[in-house]
Amino acid sequence: MIAQPQPTRLLTTLTDLVAIPSENPPGGEKAVAEYIRDWLAPLGFQVRLEEYAPGRFNAEAVLANGPGPVFAFNTHMDTVPAGDGWQSDPFTLTERAGNLYGRGSCDCKGPLAAMLEALRLMAEDRGNWSGTLMGVFTGDEEVASEGAKYYCARKQDIDMVVVGEPTGNTVFSAHKGSFRPRVRVLGRAAHSGSPHLGENAIFAAGLLMPRIAAYHDDVLSQRSHPLVGNPSLTVTRISGGHADNVIPDACELLLDRRLIPGETDDTAMAEIEALLDSARKDLNLRCEITGKNATTGGATETAEEAEIVQISLAACRASGQSDAGPFGFQGACDLVHFIDAGATGTVIGAGDIRVAHKPDEYVPRDEFIVSAKIYGDIAQQVLGN
């Protein structure tokens, strides 16, 4: 059994990480990656920083310790922008009433600090396990997961992974995906003083939107996954017109299609194309998909009977979680990219996703410390002799 996490060291690490701005956009993951390198290299890890795009970095730490499985911890180094409305400096970890406040405290510098602690404890106990232990810390998860996509496209030998996201120290083994096509509805320009001479694309888009809402209500809401629930379709942005006195000849909608495991970008695209085709025929609309916006990625799940899920559940229960899961994320995360690369995995971390992107983001202090023990216990069980 590995040693217990050291609370003082954990708090120092989280304080240091929160103090490094890595708001995305623009990112700034390099400074976090360098901190990780300086933290893990003295422990015997081979640490590689990879610039996958100009100024954007991943950090990979590897400790090979004989034959056995390849096990990785993963979380992301970027955060959402700090924004306004904080009671304290978002880049100064501040404790109030047992909670640790700061941007990234739960999403995801809290999981990162706890994973670093678990990696340290495993490195100091390498006589009691065999295999390859990794820390894979990626950039850009908050926008398009470009770091994880780049890394996993080139790394195919990880057997099991635990992804750090705020789950209240319970086990999430599935998550939704997202697909965001842009739909352009066409009209015909005219002087706004003579609107009858044109075709108002905004009005035309208004005819399409009830069809989108009905598809969500009548079709998608009837589908369900046992862990993540229903898929969805909605409109999140609308843009049309180019001058105050011109009838708009085009209006663009951004659709947000949330995927459940078993659905893909391609299947969602085919369904939306069919919806648009019916609108063309029934309403005489001119509309088309013109592209798609980048997202974190698709939906995924690891079967409950998989070894990593069972080990994760046991570790969370041993740390006091009576209802440890498995559960499913309504949002997306980087787990899908590791599964696409051949791994099985779970998502675990301290904190509540509902406070993650808000002012006064926080992680409960005791929950944060326990998360490092959970991570260490999982690594020990996967790699233990």
Rank of each mutant, 00 (worst) to 15 (best):
L233H: 04
A303G: 15
G262Y: 10
A213W: 11
E273V: 01
L208Q: 08
L259M: 06
G206V: 01
G240C: 03
P166V: 02
V185W: 03
T167Y: 10
S221Y: 02
A274D: 13
R188G: 13
T170C: 11
L186M: 15
G193M: 00
T170H: 07
R286Q: 15
L253K: 02
E252T: 14
D256W: 00
H191Q: 11
H191M: 01
P261D: 14
P248L: 03
G177P: 09
C251T: 10
T300W: 13
P261Y: 08
D249H: 13
E273Y: 02
F179Y: 15
G206A: 10
F172H: 13
E165N: 09
R184W: 01
T234L: 07
H225F: 00
A214M: 03
Q222D: 14
V228F: 02
D256Q: 02
P210Y: 08
P181V: 00
G229H: 04
N245P: 03
D217E: 15
G198H: 02
E199L: 08
I247Q: 06
N230H: 11
G198T: 01
A190Y: 01
A213L: 12
N245R: 02
V185Y: 04
T267S: 15
L233M: 08
S232L: 01
T264W: 08
P181Y: 05
A250S: 15
D266S: 09
T300L: 09
V183Y: 06
K176F: 01
V228M: 04
R286I: 10
L285N: 09
P248Q: 08
R258K: 09
A205D: 12
S194E: 05
L197M: 07
D277S: 11
E305I: 00
S221P: 06
T296L: 14
T234N: 13
L208F: 10
K292W: 05
A270D: 13
V235C: 08
L207A: 05
A190M: 01
S232E: 06
V228R: 04
A214L: 02
G241C: 03
S192I: 05
I289H: 12
D277C: 05
D265K: 01
R257G: 03
A294C: 07
T296H: 09
V235F: 04
K281T: 03
K176W: 03
